[in-house]
Every structure is written in C-alpha cells, then in structure tokens.
Design a protein around this nucleic acid. Sequence first.
DNA 1: AAGTCAATGTGACTTGCATCACTTCAAAGA
DNA 2: TCTTTGAAGTGATGCAAGTCACATTGACTT
Lengths: 187, 187
Amino acid sequence: MTHPLRQHIEEVINLTDEEFDFVLSHFVQINKRKHQYIVQEGEIVNKEYWIIKGCLKSYFVDNAGKEYILQFGMENWWITDYESFVKQTKSKTSIDCIEDSELLYISFENRDKLTAQMHKMERFWAKKSKIGRIALQNRILSLLKNSTKEKYDLLLEQYPKLFQRVPKKMIAAYLGVSRETLSRLNS
Amino acid sequence: MTHPLRQHIEEVINLTDEEFDFVLSHFVQINKRKHQYIVQEGEIVNKEYWIIKGCLKSYFVDNAGKEYILQFGMENWWITDYESFVKQTKSKTSIDCIEDSELLYISFENRDKLTAQMHKMERFWAKKSKIGRIALQNRILSLLKNSTKEKYDLLLEQYPKLFQRVPKKMIAAYLGVSRETLSRLNS
DNA sequence: AAGTCAATGTGACTTGCATCACTTCAAAGA
DNA sequence: TCTTTGAAGTGATGCAAGTCACATTGACTT
C-alpha cells in the first residue's frame, strides 16, 4: 500500500520510490494521546507536523483565559505554529490533540536540507504555502462579511466531519462567538 | 540610484546588476489615476502588481453593495487577487487606486519563466508567500480576539501613514465595522 | 462663484451577541 | 457502581454596534 504521505505529496509533484524514501527519511513518527500537546505557547517551534491520523487544534489564549482557535487539523493536514517555525520566534499559540493522533514531523533543519537537495520538494511546499495563503484570505473575507449563522453553515458545508469529532464549544471558538450563541443558532 | 524594486528584492536575496536587469525585463510599468481599477471582479487575473508609488485597495462587494477591504497596498507592496492569479479562476475581488499610482506588473507567464530560469527568484517569492501567510494568520487572530477599538489602535500603530492617505470609511471597511461606529470610537 | 458630491460626525432606535446563572445529560475515572 | 467532570441547552439582562436620518464641511466640477 502506498504511504499516505506519498499520496499526499503526489497530488502536487511526482516522486520515484527512491525519492519518496529519501523524503520520508527526513521525517519522524510520533503518537500522542488526546489532551496532549505538540506545541506550547512561548516555545520556539522547530517542527512541522503532518497528521497521519487524529484531530488537533491550534489556539491562542487571551489574558481572560478565553480560547481562540486558529486552525483544526485532521488526516493529511499540516500543522504547526507557522510564524514561530518560519521566523524562529516564540510561539503565540499552542497545539493540542483533540483525539489520539499519529503524526509525522520534520525538523526545521531537515526541511532546509531536503528543500536544498530536492528542488521538487521546495516546489511542493511553495505550492502548499500558496494554497494555505488563499485559504486564510478566504477566512478573513468570511469573518468580515458573513453573519454568525452563515459562517457556521459554511464551515458545516466545508468540513462536515469536523462536527462529529470536536465539541461545539470548539466550533464556537473557531468562529469567534460564544458557545451559548452557537447553541442558539438553530432555534 | 538603485531601482526601488532592486532594493526590495535585495532585502531577501542578493542580485548582480545583470541579474536585476534580467528580472526587471520581465516587468512592465503602468501608471493609473485615482479611482481607476487594475483588477475587476469576475476576470481571471494574470498579473501581479508591485507598487512603486501610490495607494490601492483590494475589496469585495456583497449583494447589498457593502464593501469589505481585504488589503491596502502602498509603496513597495505586492498586490493582486492572489487566488485568481494562482488558480487562474475568476476573481472575487476588485482592486482600485485610492491615489494616482505608478505600478510594475509581471504576467503569470513571465513569473513562471523567471522562476524557472532563476532559482533565486523562486526563493524570493516563496519567502514573500511565507511572510504574507503569517500576516494573514495574525489578522485572523486579531479579528477573533480584539475589540473594535483594539483593532483600530493596532492598525494605527502598524500603519500610521495609512490614516493620512485613505478616508476613514475605508478603514472601517477594513476593520469590519460601520463607519458610524468607527467615528464614535474616540468619544 | 455656484452647485454637486463625498467625507465625517452625531442623535435615535433596534438588534445580535456576550455574559451570568442554572439545568440536564452523558462520559470518564475512582 | 458511584461520583465527578465536561458538553450542551436555555432563560434573563446589558451593552456594543448596526441602521437610518440628518447636518456640516470641504473638495472637485463646470
């Protein structure tokens, strides 16, 4: 069976068996249990994670203890604190597992090495960065123009599976409304 | 005097005179007057613009005619409908000049050619894409966690010049509040 | 110079959402 | 099995911000 990471990468670029083995040799697999973290606020993040299986959230906590979810991650998604990883500054966010998860990570150094030695992978990540940027742009537009109900419906339409896997209060924290308001939406 | 685009690119990578001339040969300069557009909703965008001088806004208009500003652009900024440019799909946004502006543009094809022939420029744009993505992430976080007053103050702190160049109603359209609310903030 | 239009401020009213409080229910742990 | 904890719904209340309306000012046009 083809490795899921290979399938994922080959959606963008083609790889020979040898090339994929070389790519994979730069990754390390780890398993985490529900409620465990992979990134903690304040640390300098030097790993980028790819989710084989499971569900995670990246979030920010304000002074009042209120949580704002920036991103959910599920199978075949990349997740990290991108700002900390790229700039090597302290992370403003944390990333926790919402379910038991199997992850692959690549270190900052290995990613550097790999892109330097394999131009294809540089193109792969460049493409991913472009796609990611477009998704963020669209989320900003949605935050500006859509009502809470519309944002909820759009999310439900785009990621129906998410609603079976994460508590509603996290959906609220992602949409930027209180859990009470979310609870009252369909009434 | 060094070309402003060269200065801009050399903040990320180094270029010889020949290399910069080669890069520049892929660009075309155009001048636009206040109120003129460079991108219109519905078209497939095949140019990316770099602002030599002037001020622009990229915005979305909803069914009610309400305007939402996604990005302002001033000197040394890149601007385009990124989604349309990358995916070659119809643009959801328009881009207008807020002031008379001098622009350089590079076509989709020339950008492709240039990155294929000059790996450095691929790295330059990859870097720009990363930085852009981080900025968008931070804007999302700000939209989620900050009050209107806080968002206003942050924008004022980050881009004080903007407030002398664009009408307040556009600041409101960028922050996602009505112009009346913005007007009442400092009272 | 007169006339039009855009930008901005402000009052009055309405509404969507936050917050606090309490309840029910189901899942996890001892 | 019993107990504790988290998820989710719901009522009551207050406030921030939207909407509509109108006035003022300054800029651009002819």
